[in-house]
């Protein structure tokens, strides 16, 4: 329990730091008054606006106000869309989440069995082939992979649509394109691109952990006791590879969000990533700062969940030995 409380406190501090960065960007990049009213407004009017926005208050007061507003989901008004930033994020979020979920699930389903297999049969032909492919999977930049897929499946073969999200349907209150065939066909290539990178990383990690564990004395002892292979591999070895693997999956979840920016650009997927790129292009600072804080929140929460899982899977942490 102590472990989790300490982590929760740490997560809060991290979020305050992220909010500070967001706030400083807000504060020092560009002039919010100028962005709101343009050049024609008189100096007195600008000063009045500045006062009413609270921009003349001490900086700590402004920071506190920013944090309080952010906690309530108020990130201000976007310069370029003239809309509530949190509303815009809420609009775009489902598209990104469905992409991240689909590719995350795909990569775990493929990586875990492949990682275990290559760890056990590391000299075999299939294992060597998988490893060689994973080097390419890790090396190929995701935007390049996306373009190659479009070239092959959209331009040459004309099988799959190359841009957009397709039809969406509402099932059990969730609006998602994964519930229609058209939507799935649109999501297939972006999800595959997002999945491949994660797949390579997680696969190689699981393999490395398996190799490490299989060398230990207690595994040799398990063999010496005459236990069947399945029992040694899955009951004894696999369990001890879990902590680093869960950590990596937690970290990978956050990088899925980061890489979705690229995938969304390649496939013109209307999610958070496209929104961020638009914000950068237009120097839309409120949107930029809000994205930063939002992604920080996603990362912090996924790390907290990983910590909670540690407590479940590693008794040493539960009993305070680590």
């Amino acid at each position: 329990m102590y472990f989790l409380l300490a982590r929760l406190l740490q997560a809060t501090i991290v979020m305050l730091c992220v909010a500070l960065v967001g706030f400083l960007v807000f504060q020092f990049v560009g002039d919010p008054v100028l962005s709101l009213v343009g050049q024609e407004t008189s100096v007195e009017d600008r000063e009045a606006l500045r006062e009413s926005l609270g921009l003349n208050d001490p900086i700590l007061v402004q920071y506190a106000r920013y944090v309080v507003n952010a906690v309530q989901g108020d990130f201000g008004i976007s310069y370029s869309f003239n809309r509530d930033v949190s509303e815009m994020i809420a609009d775009r979020l489902p598209a990104t989440i469905e992409l991240v979920m689909l590719s995350g699930v795909l990569s775990l389903l493929l990586a875990i069995p492949a990682g275990i297999y290559t760890g056990i049969r590391r000299k075999g032909g299939i294992a060597q082939t998988i490893m060689a492919l994973s080097v390419i999977g890790v090396s190929i930049p995701s935007f390049l992979l996306g373009i190659l897929l479009i070239l092959v499946f959209s331009v040459w073969l004309n099988w799959l649509p190359s841009f957009g999200r397709g039809d969406v349907a509402v099932v059990l209150g969730f609006r998602s394109s994964l519930f229609t065939w058209d939507g799935l066909s649109h999501a297939l290539m972006p999800a595959a691109v997002l999945c491949l990178f994660q797949l390579g990383v997680i696969l190689r990690l699981i393999r490395a952990e398996m190799l490490e564990v299989l060398r230990t004395d207690y595994i040799r002892f398990a063999w010496a006791r005459g236990l069947p292979g399945g029992r040694v591999y899955f009951r004894h070895a696999l369990k001890n590879t879990l902590v680093p693997v869960v950590t990596a999956i937690g970290l990978q979840l956050s990088s899925l969000f980061a890489f979705s920016i690229i995938t969304e650009r390649v496939f013109q997927w209307p999610g958070m990533g496209s929104l961020l790129l638009h914000a950068i292009g237009q120097s839309d600072i409120p949107l930029l700062a809000a994205y930063l804080i939002f992604v920080g929140l996603v990362f912090t929460i996924s790390n907290l969940v990983v910590d909670a899982i540690y407590v479940l899977i590693d008794p040493r942490i539960r009993h305070g030995a680590l």
Partner: peptide, 10 residues
Amino acid sequence: AFPPILIALL
């Protein structure tokens, strides 16, 4: 906690 590519991008 943040992927390097995101930091470079921001």
